[in-house]
């Protein structure tokens, strides 16, 4: 995984609240057996009509959204199904961060393992971001800040371990594998019970 440190990008805004993972990637696309290429079907039912044409009014389809790597969404983003296909699709499409006022638990965990930053900011910052779609923001994972065009700096928090892994491009499985001796000791205790 590529390390994430600091990057600047324009945003794209989807102000709808409670965007669930069934919207991010509908279930009929979960028959994939790889994690690559899912960006094509990101928000499929919102981006495309039933016969596959682009819906021009949808925020991601507007020309000014092209190249945006930061998605700003309404409250409680990523609720519902645990499908990791949701962060895979967002990442594959090009997103590297999602900003909301709150992010659902499982989606947050899944995103952190896939180089997609789930960022919860205060309501005032969120309102500013929604009011100025396609503006540039700078995100620093080192400082845990989002800097807006007007100079506003909002803090966010990523748990220290996930932050360490993301900054260094390390994956969590390695850390778990290194605990082999402790896991074996735990299993011995369990069998003795």
């Amino acid at each position: 995984m590529e390390p994430i440190k600091t990057f600047t990008s324009k945003t794209v805004a989807l102000p709808t609240e409670n965007i669930d993972t069934d919207q991010i990637i509908p279930a009929r696309f979960l028959k994939a057996t790889s994690k690559n290429g899912l960006g094509k079907v990101l928000f499929a039912d919102w981006r495309f009509t039933a016969d596959g044409a682009l819906k021009p009014e949808f925020a991601l389809n507007k020309p000014e959204a092209a190249g945006a790597r930061v998605l700003v969404a309404g409250d409680n983003f990523g609720c519902g199904s645990s499908r990791e296909h949701a962060p895979w699709a967002l990442y594959d499409y090009g997103f590297r961060a999602v900003i909301s006022t709150s992010i659902a638990d499982i989606f947050k965990n899944n995103s952190l393992k896939n180089g997609l930053l789930p960022i919860a900011v205060d309501a005032a910052t969120h309102a500013k971001l929604l009011a100025a779609p396609n503006a540039e923001v700078t995100i620093s994972l080192e400082a845990q800040t989002v800097t807006l065009g007007d100079g506003t700096v909002a803090k966010f928090v990523v748990d220290p371990f996930s932050r360490y892994c993301l900054l260094n491009g390390i994956d969590e499985l390695q850390f778990l594998l290194s605990q082999d001796a402790e896991i074996s000791a735990f299993e011995k205790k369990l069998e003795a019970k």
Partner: peptide
């Protein structure tokens, strides 16, 4: 509780999971 596919691989490989206490 439900987990994502990365965590499925963690549990397959180590029978353990990294968790922050809810």
């Amino acid at each position: 509780f439900g987990i994502g596919t990365s965590e499925v691989s963690h549990v397959l490989a180590t029978q353990s999971l990294l968790q922050n206490k809810p």
